[in-house]
Design a protein around this nucleic acid. Structure first.
Lengths: 259, 259
DNA sequence: GAAGCGGTTCCACATAGTGGAACTCCTCTA
DNA sequence: TAGAGGAGTTCCACTATGTGGAACCGCTTC
């Protein structure tokens, strides 16, 4: 739901940029005007201002507007700004070398889970995704780990506002079952997922605790079901725990979250 | 140099976000107020509006402002929006599998070169960088390839406004020598670089031509000098040419840029 | 050749945003 | 322990920014 602040132009900018998605990466002026309920002259002036700053770009051939590379630059700086990613990356690379699967670092952000770093295995059959990808918080090992440590009112807000849509054959869509699962995750300190978000995929993830004791990110490993064994799952959990602990210590958490 | 448009609030947003860099990822209100020459009350209102939309975030412990994850989401969408990256990625993975070095996809953007995709080799000693990283256009194989195909007035503007700073032991800093180098690159259809941007690094890159005949990106391979041989360099050039051609064809260029 | 539609520009008018002052809160020093 | 100083926060009379309908241009289609 759209937020309103005391700087209306910033609100409008967010509305404009949020119109662009994986499903619709390009808009004509008229389409966007209708989508946003803005007069074309107003929108046109706004879009050309964003173009001047490379926040948007307009393909002269089809006159369609797309997000610009300035956002990529800011996005990279955003991902780097806390230092978490920089610290986590070499540890993730070791995780990938050991598990031969893809490692993923995610954070919780506004009722969604966002990937801020990934190291992919070079195995041809693998889990692949992009930094900046966002996911529902109720499905997938990394997502469930992050949701498990949210305040109860935030969990309620997610269920109410995002819902628990069925994304794959094993997605948990019942709120009571999901809460049981989140309690189990807190108890055992890790999450496991099998075909909750993607057919043929499985993964495990553990929380990364920050200096104030809260969960700041999740680290997980994911791969295809064809390489799943229960033994590998247990090994991966232990490896993710160690990785999470090392990252916690490096970012200044007391005891690296192991109390 | 800061641009001015007819939407002053957008200009201000860019000024604010551009204050954040790798060197200074976090600012206090007072610091940023001084940096931007804005009264604290004005800036405070602006920053809290950006925070509401997760464009910025404020760490409650140190009260410092940092770029927010919303930019990461938009940045990922920006990188995906043209389809180039999606098309290029599997080809880059093959390139990495064959060369055992890191592959990089870059575009030219406002007197800078920006990385929009990378596939790193898993060799422990390697060239590593992040998507969204920006570089000077006069140094490094990928950068020089992109600069070589710019209009002359843009080359002049780069030399005049960015300059040709010495980044490493082999950076070309003389405008005449650089122009000769760019002419050579156009003639031979690839660029090579040895320790122009980073000590101990070398690389090769070739241009990717678009449907309108212009260069839309560069694809390159880079690694440490310890693994350099002239034969490998020639092999890598041929492999990058093939990769660039395949990408060109897939994005709709006639003859994939080989005329 | 004309109609229709998408994109572009202009300017009288309306709304958004300003920023100094006063305030609160926190830290440091005497 | 109290006071000073500085950072952050809020308010509102005032100023600057941005609006959007109309008219225009250019292109495509019938």
């Amino acid at each position: 739901m759209a937020k309103v602040t005391s700087v209306k132009t910033v609100d409008r900018l967010v509305a404009v940029l949020d119109s662009f998605s994986s499903e619709k990466p390009a808009w004509s002026l008229t389409e966007l005007s209708q989508q946003l309920g803005l007069p074309k002259s107003t929108l046109h002036r706004f879009l050309t201002a964003l173009e001047t700053h490379s926040i948007l770009r307009c393909d002269p051939r089809d006159k369609r507007w797309r997000l610009g590379y300035r956002l990529l630059i800011w996005g990279n700086l955003a991902a780097e700004s806390s230092g978490l990613r920089h610290i986590a990356r070499p540890i993730m690379e070791e995780l990938v070398a050991t598990t031969r699967e893809t490692a993923i670092l995610t954070v919780y952000h506004q009722q969604e889970v966002v990937c801020i770093e990934k190291v992919e295995t070079n195995h041809p059959v693998r889990m692949t995704l992009q930094v900046g990808t966002r996911r529902f918080p109720h499905a997938g090992a990394s997502s469930k780990v992050l949701m498990a440590y949210l305040p109860e009112e935030e969990v309620q807000a997610i269920i109410r506002e995002k819902g628990l849509p069925r994304l794959c054959v094993n997605t948990i869509t019942d709120p009571r079952r999901l809460r049981e699962e989140l309690a189990r995750i807190r108890e055992q300190g890790y999450a496991e997922s099998h075909e909750e978000t993607d057919l043929g995929a499985w993964g495990v993830a553990t929380p990364i605790f920050g200096p104030d004791g809260g969960v700041v990110a999740a680290i997980g490993v994911a791969g295809p079901r064809s390489r799943y064994t229960e033994q590998r799952a247990q090994e991966f959990v232990a490896l993710c725990r160690q990785a999470a602990h090392r990252i916690s210590v490096l970012i200044g958490a007391k005891q690296g979250g192991l109390e």
